[in-house]
Design a protein around this nucleic acid. Structure first.
Lengths: 129, 129
DNA sequence: TGACATCTACTACATGTGTAGTAGTAATTA
DNA sequence: TAATTACTACTACACATGTAGTAGATGTCA
């Protein structure tokens, strides 16, 4: 019987960084995850371990096999899904849908005309696909 | 001497709800803040009090005067600023600038063509002002 | 096979956040 | 003014998150 699919995993900041590593690796051991993280913010081995264990409890990753005595983990959630959960939560936190957020991004100059052009292109592409 | 302006206040979810109340009220007592919050998620009086005190420590609000024995609080940060801090933090958390975020919003269908049109209008208006 | 390296499974602990209770004081009212 | 009410200043506490240490098991190499 398959493990419960963990519909809504909302990773914390650190969990996200570790998932980023895993998404890049495809799968890997704690050691591999840790060493693949950017040097400037690479936690201690056991810190990575703790977070991976927590992700495991949340059904965001799973052990697939062993190499030597090391467990190999692989992600059970996609970056898409995680990002979606984070975005939804964030939208809730700032109280509003995408509209207020976007408006703010534009108002505060965080988004420029060129960006919008690019997005429209993306949208057209998506629509016609 | 003026109090340190608290450049970067990044309110938590609950703090944001309380600030929302204060922004609407302009200023008010704990009681007024509490009672102006939406019934469905209105914390106990002392909970609001605790959060207001914490906002005070963060220099996000300040006591202005007393009415009876009740302190009147007013916000020291604008919604704009708070939102900006939240957005910057969020962008950091998901690892990326606005581009990946927007892209995701479009890809996941959270943004539609009409929204983009509206934003362009906003942007033009802003640019020509 | 014995020493050394590596991993795992646990435990620990500070800080942040949500949530609220309590004791005591100040204001209001009968 | 005595009783009641409202507020303030503190304290408390659970859960989440970042961060890491330790003990013991397992694997590897000389």
């Amino acid at each position: 019987m398959a493990v419960k699919p963990a519909r809504t995993v909302k990773p914390t900041r650190l969990e996200m960084e570790i998932l980023d590593a895993l998404w890049k690796l495809g799968s890997g051991s704690i050691r591999e995850i840790q060493e693949s993280m950017p040097e400037d913010r690479r936690p201690e081995y056991t810190t990575v371990q703790t977070i991976v264990y927590r992700l495991e409890e949340k059904n965001a990753v799973r052990r697939t096999r062993k190499i030597g005595n090391a467990h190999i983990f692989k992600p059970l959630v996609s970056r898409q899904a995680a990002l979606g959960a984070l975005i939804d939560d964030f939208l809730g936190a700032i109280g509003g849908g995408t509209a207020p957020l976007m408006a703010h991004l534009v108002e505060s100059g965080r988004i420029k005309a060129a960006d919008l052009k690019e997005l429209e292109r993306l949208l057209r592409e998506r629509g016609s696909k």
